[in-house]
């Protein structure tokens, strides 16, 4: 097999490959580090972190769907202090690359507080600011559903940080392009999309929603075409890099997402079905690149004519 180049550069930091496990599907890395060397990854986006510890939503939090799943975890995390004092030191033992910190909040001040703290950690390469969690009330998505709301978060976060800020957007909006442009104007260094789509399932026996929180975030292969479309639209409208995600399940999907305009690609639900999904996709990339006559992944970013 000919030598192929899988390296990409995201906001000035080179990645060995564009494959990034998405936040909420990879914990803080160690469940996976027990079963494979997670240093094969481009990086990974760690579990969404908030100012205060959160238990999240009541269970059941998970529902099966055709080619996908719904989750309503609700940002369970130990809070930023513990993430810094306990999770990051543990991660350091099994991961030697810059990690992507994923941050969420319930007010502009909370976003700024958490980002400012995380920004000081040398292990952190990028901060992915989640303005799109569909599973918490009064936070997350509330900021990401209007251009002004998203821009306000970006400005507040940029004012207190030095690391690249990637804004994670919701697909549950009328015009994702307008929101992406507002984030770019407010100083965002990159955009990542799409977060999960709001969905719901009903238990026919009980005649109640399957999920305790009634609705949740729909992810998995079923949403891949929506994600490709939105990555295409947003990457054509902004100059900053786009990180594509949503239903990515294979090396072919990674390449398709990059052709749509993604500089790097996050893999979410697939990790929960096959814990080796990201490793397998990375191992398969050279074969698929050769098949489609791609020498370097950098060359295909936005390459869809």
């Amino acid at each position: 097999m000919a030598e192929v180049n899988t390296k990409v550069t995201l906001c000035g930091i080179e990645l060995d490959n564009p494959v990034i496990p998405a936040s909420g599907t990879f914990g803080f890395g160690y469940e996976f580090a027990e079963i494979y060397d997670i240093n094969v990854l481009g990086t990974f986006s760690f579990k969404g972190t908030t100012k205060d510890p959160r238990f999240g939503n009541p269970t059941p939090r998970i529902a099966e769907c055709t080619s996908g799943m719904i989750n309503a975890v609700g940002l369970q995390n130990p809070g930023v202090e513990k993430v810094i004092s306990e999770e990051l030191p543990k991660l350091k033992k099994c991961f030697n690359k810059p990690v992507m910190a994923n941050v969420s909040g319930f007010s502009i001040d909370e976003y700024a507080y958490t980002c400012a703290k995380i920004d000081k950690e040398e292990q952190v390469g990028w901060i992915e600011v989640n303005v799109s969690c569909p599973n918490v009330h009064g936070g997350g998505m509330a900021f990401g559903t209007s251009p002004e709301g998203a821009a306000n978060v970006v400005r507040a976060v940029k004012a207190v940080t030095t690391k690249p800020i990637i804004v994670k957007l919701s697909p549950n909006v009328t015009d994702i392009v307008a929101i992406a442009k507002a984030c770019e104007e407010a100083g965002a260094d990159a955009i990542s999309l799409i977060n999960t789509m709001l969905g719901m399932r009903i238990d026919l026996n009980k005649r109640t929603p399957v999920i305790a929180n009634k609705m949740g975030g729909f992810s998995g292969p079923a949403i891949f075409p929506v994600a490709v479309r939105m990555v295409y639209q947003v990457s054509h409208a902004v100059k900053i890099p786009v990180v594509g995600m949503g239903g990515v399940n294979s090396a072919e999907d990674v390449i398709e997402m990059m052709m749509a305009g993604a500089t790097a690609v996050e893999v979410g639900a697939a990790n929960l079905i096959n814990p080796f999904a990201c490793r397998d996709i990375i191992n398969d990339l050279p074969r698929v690149m050769e098949k489609y006559k791609i020498n370097s992944l950098k060359e295909i970013i936005g390459g869809c004519k």
Binding site: G56, T59, P60, R61, M69, V73, V210, L272
Partner: peptide
């Protein structure tokens, strides 16, 4: 028993509160 996402501790889909803190039923 709980509805699970991954079954190996990654997704926090099956968490519960215990006397000693939050625990994942699966892990």
């Amino acid at each position: 028993e709980e509805r699970m996402g991954c079954g190996f501790g990654a997704c926090m889909g099956c968490s519960c509160k215990t006397v000693t803190g939050y625990k994942r039923i699966c892990k």
